[in-house]
Design a protein around this nucleic acid. Structure first.
Lengths: 252, 252
DNA sequence: CGGATGATTGAGAAGTCTCAACCGTGGTGG
DNA sequence: CCACCACGGTTGAGACTTCTCAATCATCCG
């Protein structure tokens, strides 16, 4: 089911990653080439399959090429929750370059392709190119900002606002990644996956989505989530894209 | 009330910070001296006062010299919640070195002393000393790991377990910082502050603490929280210090 | 056709919040 | 020195949110 191929034709995903870095960091053409020369094994993962377990020591970061990857936490009795999501162009676990023992795990949120980028390659880039180092630092800063926002939302917002917020976040992030148009954002995602990433039961998520549907903010056709009213949805969520570190590119 | 003095006698806090870095990173004596040559204005802050507001562009990181600092998030109508805590020796907001626009705010959780360390100084250290850069990177990784754990706890654990967990976390972190003995950990903290950092109302926090008291896990005398039964408390919390990145120094 | 997976609905239980009141302590001003 | 006030802690009762258990329905796929 999960298929691994050689890393020869991975250029497009790294191009994607480079475009991401260029949004906030200036890189010389040499540095850009260096990014594009990165390589790594590609894994094709079915939705739900694990990428790395918690308490694992890893030697790679994980570049999302397609689909959505989840960072998760779990209790001793196996209940899981999603603590972050990563969209195409995101490099998951840049922290692990210096801290290779993970407390979290990664799994395929949807079916996805992931490139295993060796820490060694990244370390070399960081050592040789200060601008790349700064770019990766910024990526980590954005990751941290998102994580803090999730914690805040968990404490401050109810199930409906939290759900609306994560939908807005994914819309903007995938839009920024060039994968979707924000106003016509559509996401193929199961209710149980969504529930896990907002800290709700599937059953309650079902009722939350019904409410969002009744308010004409989203529609759900054949497991496809579509934003029908961005203004209304982002207002309900109190969504402000500033924390995504995109420097006003999506000020609405 | 908040008093700022010149940065001449700040050596002890930076010694503390250095000791923190040495827990996970090897630094030459030159590098250690470079850390100790850092400087910055010292602010003495009353509990509850703001350090930086959300959506501010900053030019400093904030080294906690004494007391506890909170990273917070707030809604438009002013309700606040704490998303992270920082204990003495922590450098808050290392991310801001490359991403100076904060989406979060910082405030004094307890009365505390904070040193404003200019980004410039940190950037210079990072550029000159790869080992220091790696040390700071590791600090950010730990920060991220803690933040992810908080998100997970918010979704997975009920009020009692979450409260127990944060008490355990603070005990270990302050212990690691050399401020307290874990088994005799005591913290002067109001119930409302604690409530804000676990996402509960004060009233419910009161009942949670009563439960922890009735189970003989903690005691609360004159606003001082004391751990009476570390084993029981950490078991109830499902606390595993691995996520604090202390590499087994506190394996229990 | 049968089975698996995901979506939907209902009803009752549990957890947490809100409002309201009261208590205890420490500090302040008369 | 004492009265008073402000603040944090404590308790109760009822409302609201979310969970749990249980059942049914729809769709897709072999």
């Amino acid at each position: 089911m999960n298929h691994v191929t050689d890393g020869d034709f991975v250029s497009p995903p790294f191009r994607h990653f480079l475009a991401r870095l260029l949004k906030h960091s200036e890189l010389t053409s040499k540095e850009q080439e260096a990014i594009l020369r990165l390589s790594g094994q590609v894994a094709h993962l079915a939705a739900g399959s694990d990428i790395v377990g918690p308490n694992t020591t890893i030697a790679h970061a994980h570049l999302v090429a397609q689909g959505i990857v989840a960072r998760f936490d779990e209790t001793k009795d196996g209940r899981r929750t999603v603590t972050s999501l990563f969209v195409p162009g995101d490099m998951c676990g840049l922290q692990s370059i210096e801290c290779p023992m993970t407390s979290w795990g990664l799994s395929a949120f949807t079916a996805c392709n992931v490139i295993y980028v060796p820490h060694d390659q990244l370390r070399t880039l960081i050592d040789l190119h200060p601008a790349i180092r700064r770019g990766l630092w910024t990526e980590m800063a954005i990751d941290a900002s998102i994580q803090a926002k999730w914690t805040g939302n968990a404490f401050l917002k109810n199930s409906v606002a939290r759900t609306a917020h994560i939908i807005c976040e994914l819309a903007v992030r995938m839009n920024s990644a060039g994968n979707a148009n924000r106003t016509k954002f559509a996401l193929k995602i199961s209710q149980s996956s969504l529930a896990q990433s907002v800290g709700l039961t599937v059953i309650h998520m079902n009722r939350v989505l019904r409410e969002l549907r009744e308010k004409e903010l989203v529609s759900t056709d054949s497991r496809m989530l579509v934003i029908k009213d961005w203004q209304g949805l982002s207002k309900l969520a109190e969504f402000d894209a500033a924390y995504l570190g995109l420097a006003g590119h999506f000020s609405s």
